[in-house]
Design a protein around this nucleic acid. Sequence first.
DNA 1: GACATCACG
DNA 2: GACGTACGTGATGTCC
Length: 940
Amino acid sequence: MDSISATFGKGHHLHLIDGSAFIFRAYHALPPLTRKSDGLPVGAVAGFCNMLWKYVTDERGSDAPTHAAVIFDHSAKTFRNQIYSAYKANRPEPPEDLRPQFPLTRDATRAFNIACIETEGYEADDIIAALSCKARDAGGRVTIVSSDKDLMQLVGDGVQMLDPIKGKPIDRDEVFEKFGVWPDRVVDVQALAGDAVDNVPGAPGIGIKTAAQLITEYGDLETLLARAGEIKQPKRRQTLIDHADQIRISKRLVELDCNTPLDFTLESLEVRAPDAPALLTFLSEMEFRTLTARVAERLGAEAPAVVSAPPRDAPAAPDLPPIDRAAYETVTDRAALDRWVQSIRDTGHVAIDTETTGLDEMQADLAGICLAVAPGVACYIPVGHVAGGDAGGGDDLFGQSALVAGQLPLAQVLAALKPVLEDDAILKIGQNLKYDWKILARHGIRMAPLADTMLMSYALNAGTHNHGMDELAERYLAHKCIPIKDLIGTGKAQINFAQVPIDKAAPYAAEDADVTLRLYRHFAPLLPVERVTTVYETTERPIVPVLAEMEMAGIRIDSDVLRRMSGSFAQSMAGLEDEIFALAGQRFNVGSPKQLGEILFDKMGLAGGKTGKTGAFSTSADVLEDLAAEGHDLPSRILDWRQIAKLKSTYTDALPTFVNPETGRVHTSYSIAGAQTGRLASTDPNLQNIPVRTEEGRRIREAFIAAEGHRLVSLDYSQIELRILAHVADIPALKQAFRDGIDIHAMTASQMFGVPVEGMDPMIRRRAKAINFGVIYGISSFGLSRNLRIPRAEAQDFIDTYFQRFPEIRAYMDRTVADAKSDGSVRTLFGRRINTPGINASGPAAGGARRAAINAPIQGAAADIIRRAMVRMPAAIAGLPARMLLQVHDELVFEVREDAVDDLIAAARTVMEGAAEPAVRLSVPLVVDAGVGANWAEAH
DNA sequence: GACATCACG
DNA sequence: GACGTACGTGATGTCC
């Protein structure tokens, strides 16, 4: 930095960051934060700083910029308003709470020690253009950090763009993709097509597609205008002739000028290292606790001398010692172990984490156990470490790795811990405790009582972020955990945790327990403040052992049946492939959507446009069904092939590989804090998406069988989400129908179309059903028209009629969205909070957030209800020879001894139908249907 | 590792 | 400053 800069030129790389785009992204992506001390709105500044920090710390290797600047728009009025007074006229004023943040973003840029540039009378785009030209002409390279389409004209010749959100470069090909012409003709296309957002008029009735076609045909805009008389389409010809002046003005509006005056040199933009004190001062003045700490740690780690004065409000609470990995103890003798057990008894709680040889709790072996009793007071007890890994050697004569010496025997450690782990007076704190619970249960220890930091975070923050420990530590403790990859590596060279040398494993492992304990202390007081204690205590915390027992029980499957099905599927697929190749006139990979798209749309010339950002043809079932309906055979065969291929690869081939060799059963794993809405998710394997909708698929359920002398019993809630909607939206007609037990979709159809329920046309009922579901999902005419394959206007008519007939639903939707906007979250009937970031965004992205906010309280309440039922179920069926095995959102599957089927159904149904009470007294009944069989197909 | 596709509620 | 379209999931195969 002190060295005299060389003149900017070859080998130099200039980064130009579109500051205004950063600000607006930040503003819309974040909830409206204010500074605690004085209420100053700082949400956009916070997001802006986070983006800059991410930008600054991104590893770019040899591609790193040598020069960089952030460029801002100076004011709304620019020279373009002299050309065309209405330019950007329909741009709304920036929001009230954003305006005071503009100058702060300049301060932030300077605090990051990045050049901060704006010029009166010019837009950021003009300055970026001038700098790009200048740098390129000097022989350097330029990267414009922005995804603004107005800048795309600059791409090429050493200038590229970089989408800051996706991190993806935008080069000539992407520009061509977007505009249908190369960058040098982009302004011509823009001049013709105009731009509603910037209020650039263009030529009426001409969009990007048509514009690109015309420019390609005539070469450039002037030629096109000169020869406009030759255009065949009369309307298009007249438009171009009539609006030639307007088009030329449009071109001047969109064209960026390389000659925008600059009052500084390229050399002055040379990248400078952050000035740590200045940056930390700014960030702490803004009161960004997390970011301040993150920046301090990063800069401190690289240049410890710089951080002389720690920021005023570093996040670590002052009473907590900092995390010190060197302070952890490795327990290798009996006396030390006894001392730790005594500490646990003294404090009445312990944070615990198990380290194992794998991720499958049903098969993994213990490598060690970590404990923490106070922040900073943690230990690691190795019990299963073996020689190997990068230590090399150590295999004994049998090819088995021998235990490393100096570890306490596993049995002794477990025997010493078992009394405290099962002691009702000692709280066991963990992160995703279901995992550790299962590991220890396999060794005869059933931990209770439990507290789970992952579930606390889920109760507090569902919808905002994920709840893994590394993420939580960074967010709430401003601490970066040692990545597991640092110990076990990745890919083929990956070793298991038992092979990690103990001296390397201990700090990592003990840190996990320490961090967990600190997270617990952070979250515990927040639960009552945020009013999520009831949710945590009734639907999160107690479900851990319930799910653990279900997963350990597993379900029996008949692998032979599945293997036979695989064989028969293979034959069907081979037969279909022959037909497909014959119809296509060539062989190809039927499983490749890319190859299929080329054959259907390029080679055979069927209608069906491109889609998506990759520009590839869509060959989804939707598209193929339409083609099949037009009488094309190939798409129809492909659909058949796909269905069989799916069943084979995902189910009949895969399921047998999940059979546990010891139990002979399949053990899924439920993630408790994965879904945004409170639902569970099933993984490894997913047993919540076993086929049922088609006849062939349903046969896979026949392979899910009961143990000898037992039956499978399935109980499922009937229409639970619609019942919840009827209750929360308080819709008299719907509630009465549920009370009377009549067909709800037929009733809806009857009300909407004025036809009697008796003898209803199935097609009419189907439409009503689609609308009922649509409402739950935050209906749109587009979605409904696609689902029912009817014109959009007709779909809109249906929706209008529906809202007219059930006005309470509209009121509920509006109310929910309003709540989401003001609170940043929505709640279920049972108090579960689901955060709704992005609800205050504008534009189409807001549509998705809006629909999610409408759906969340309904889907979430249904999830609450079945969770409540599951928590109560073990006690309710304790006296019966029965086990709960699976949950599929609104269904519970049990395995019951033959003679106890009726008792089980009675007991479980009572629990399920009463699960909302006493917390909520629903104004509609909950109804549970039951089925019994030797296999899941019969039971369902 | 991203994307497309498709299985479920 | 552009953005795609019913909500919520997970697994698989292709292709880069």
